[in-house]
Design a protein around this nucleic acid. Structure first.
Length: 401
DNA sequence: TCTGGGGTCCTAGGACCC
DNA sequence: TCTGGGGTCCTAGGACCC
């Protein structure tokens, strides 16, 4: 099940005067993240920069994202599905997989009737529409849910699956992106049907495991399980930021990384997580990544511990003949940190006092909003921002550590 | 001012060991 | 007599998703 233009649909539900009008969300990000069907009809596409939209599509209404509301709608939407089965995997904010196997008899409904009820209840209770696909595997259900949008209901069975797959271009298959599409097209595989019909030996020889799974699923063999476990933690936490113009200025790049690290650590502490590995990257003007991963003996979530290590190896990724557009930090191998462990070399006293400082900072953040307090090493990137048009930041009281 | 931000999973190849 | 063969672990980077 897939929400139709989900973020925009939530906005319309909140404010019905938007109904029937071309609208997008994503003002705060600078690109269109969700697009109403009316805006799609005008030619607005996903990822289009907002400035371009204002210029070329002045009739389009541009809305800032309201993620708290979307999360509420999302939960209510999934709750409706849970009235009919308890095996529901929340795949993203607007998509879920559900296993209906065996429920016709207890519910005294056909599968189609169950799906029609789900759609009806969501429409009545939330005033949004969804598109649903029913099929023997997740991959085919994805094909089915995209088949007819918005407000669609498509059923693919073992018997009729190839009729659908004949009309699905290979690049529209879930899990097959631009790179693999190009490779497959060079081998004359243009549709999902072409791929499904290749023999096993060919798939295994030319493609890797994820594509073997896709191949099996297109052939009605379910290998991707539905995972109904609620996601309550993270495998990794990433913070990245693109700036313009791109630069090769080392102090500025380090300051951006400092900001990334601070933001990632703040989130990690909020979930009581700490990282055994910290990965950071510089992204060049040509969209190439240069990265390093730093292992830590004991898990970390304090920027003061992480930043010196990043500075130490920064030169291994930095090249003075390149210009960079983005920096980013990922905290990996996250471990639950309800109880803190002192490290082996007696650094625990220093760490303890840093932890106390951060407890205070975190509570200030909660009270006064984000980024009221930050490291002095982050200051350079904020200065640059202040010079720009974002005058709100000028009003902030900044406190330096 | 062409192309944001936050995730997950997989693989090739180097390092190291016996 | 001139570096074989097999194994594990780790990391950089690619690919894809929403």
């Amino acid at each position: 099940m897939d929400g139709d233009a989900f973020f925009v649909a939530c906005e319309v539900s909140k404010n019905p005067s938007l109904r029937g009008k071309p609208a997008v969300t994503g003002e705060e990000r600078g690109i269109a993240t969700a697009i109403s069907y009316e805006a799609k009809a005008l030619g607005v596409s996903r990822g289009m920069p907002i400035f371009q939209l204002k210029k070329n599509f002045p009739s389009v209404i541009i809305l800032p994202g309201d993620y708290a509301t979307y999360a509420l709608y999302s939960q209510k939407m999934f709750d409706v599905v849970r009235r009919y089965t308890d095996t529901v995997e929340e795949y993203s904010i607007d998509e879920c997989f559900a296993d209906l196997t065996g429920w016709q008899k207890p519910l005294r409904m056909t599968y189609r009737e169950i799906l029609e009820n789900i759609k009806k209840e969501i429409k009545e209770e939330l005033d949004i529409t969804v598109s649903i696909g029913l099929a023997p595997t997740k991959t085919l259900a994805k094909v089915a849910s995209k088949w007819c949008k918005p407000d669609g209901l498509t059923i693919i069975s073992k018997e009729n699956s190839h009729e659908f797959l004949l009309k699905v271009p290979i690049y529209n298959v879930w899990g097959i992106g631009p790179s693999t599409s190009q490779f497959l097209m060079r081998h004359d595989i243009k549709t999902a049907h072409d791929l499904a019909n290749k023999d096993k030996a060919w798939i295994e020889h030319f493609l890797s495991k994820p594509y073997f799974d896709i191949w099996q699923e297109l052939n009605c063999l379910s290998v991707r399980a539905i995972d109904p476990e609620a996601k309550n933690s993270y495998a990794s936490i990433q913070k990245t930021k693109t700036f313009h113009p791109p630069t090769k200025n080392i102090p500025f790049l380090l300051s951006e990384l400092s900001k990334n690290v601070e933001a990632a650590c703040l989130k990690a502490r909020h979930y009581h997580l700490a990282a055994k590995r910290v990965h950071f990257f510089l992204k060049t003007q040509e969209f190439r990544y240069h990265a390093i991963e730093i292992p830590f003996l004991s898990p970390v979530n304090l920027p003061e511990i992480i930043l010196p290590q990043i500075e130490k190896v920064f030169n291994k990724v930095y090249r003075s003949d390149r210009i960079y557009r983005t920096t980013g930090v990922t905290l990996r191998e996250l471990i639950s940190q309800r109880v803190t462990q002192p490290d082996l070399f007696g650094n625990s006293i220093k760490t303890d006092s840093l932890e106390m400082i951060h407890e205070q900072i975190d509570s200030l953040e909660e009270k006064f909003g984000r980024h009221v307090v930050h490291l002095a090493s982050t200051q350079k990137s904020l200065n640059r921002k202040v010079k720009g048009t974002d005058s709100n930041d000028l009003d902030r009281d900044l406190l330096f550590l």
